[in-house]
């Protein structure tokens, strides 16, 4: 996005501070989920959030399982 509402992102990050300290995996996903939803809400355009959230979960799981598989 050409114009990114950095203040909103800061606000979301502040809300997620508790999770970040406890569960980084969850933090990464929820932060991205909330920012995508925020952009979709503001622009009114479909951003395929459901697909993106599934991909995010898959990515985190793959990352977690990778060392075990090796």
């Amino acid at each position: 996005m050409a114009i990114k509402n950095s203040d909103v992102m800061r606000q979301i990050e502040m809300m997620l501070k508790g999770i970040k300290e406890k569960d980084l995996q969850q933090y990464t996903i929820i932060k991205e989920l909330l920012s995508e939803v925020y952009l979709e809400y503001n622009t009114g355009r479909n951003r395929n959030v459901e697909r993106k959230l599934t991909d995010l979960i898959d990515a985190e799981v793959s990352f977690k399982l990778k060392p075990t598989q090796q």
Binding site: M15, Q25, Q26, I30, L53, I57, V61
Partner: peptide
């Protein structure tokens, strides 16, 4: 089924957290 299990469990956590955020907000 490790992968599916992990995906499902992570999705559960995300779901619980977003619900909490909603209530908290």
């Amino acid at each position: 089924n490790t992968k599916e299990k992990e995906r499902f469990q992570l999705a559960e956590k995300v779901n619980a957290s977003t619900s909490q955020f909603y209530d908290h907000f």
